[in-house]
Amino acid sequence: MPGAQGGQGLVEPIVLVTPGIALLFGAFLFPVGQILVLSVVPSGEELGAWSNFARFFADDYYIRVAWRTFRLSLLITAATALIGFPLAYAMARAPRWLAFLLLLLTVLPLMTSVVVRTFGWMMVLGRGGPVTDLLMLFGLSARNAVLLQTETGIVVAMVQVLLPFMVLTTLGVIAGIHPHLEEAARTMGAGFYKTLRHVVLPLSLPGLVSGSLLVFAISMSSFITPNLIGGVRLPVMASAIYQQAIHTLDWGFAAAQSTLLLIAVLGLLVPYLALMRRARV
């Protein structure tokens, strides 16, 4: 029995985890905590402690940015769930070679730099790109219509960037559904689609929900793709924070916006982690 020795072996695991804990406290929790502190510290002499938050909620511009971020994240999440569920189901039930191929084609884009993938979308969606040609071919748009610097463009690119997270989270749950359950439903007379709808979908729900929470949290805080595809005309919260921190050097205000973003994201991630823990057991 590994645990039978009781306290005898406690020193060794403590020695092993200490460097990691030191790194996490010094280089992770401390910087993140620093943001929280800086967001409430008064930034000017005549300003109160919460002035940075007051400024955020008083300014129409930032409310609009926050609303756009929320709205786009919702669309992105819905689209990834819609595409991700059939893909994850196919991965779980396909023959080995096909399942592996699908996994490879999900993981490969995931592990490619976001900068490179976004660059690809800039060409696909931009002037003279294949999407414009297709739309023109079907007479769906005027000449030179471009999806670059549109909200549609941001959603399309973000769905491709975040789909792997949805698929892999859902796959973990679907792979745990025993095929006998589907076979039982089928032999009892339910059709394929009915089985999918009444057996597989409800059982996959924990995966879909945790995948959605994860995708929503990541898209709320994404910055590279929305910034490059949307441009300066369509800022999201993360690009506003980047502007404040790097260009205007208003760290207090950037910290306050980061804190708001952190609260929103934690509100999503805590249920996500709870769901994942339940799914693992």
Binding site: F28, Q34, A217, Y242, W251, A254, L273
Partner: peptide, 15 residues
């Protein structure tokens, strides 16, 4: 893994 890297990034910059 789950904390947005933009928040971690600005924290590091400030520190």
């Amino acid at each position: 893994l789950v904390l947005p890297s933009i928040i971690f990034g600005i924290g590091l910059l400030i520190v």
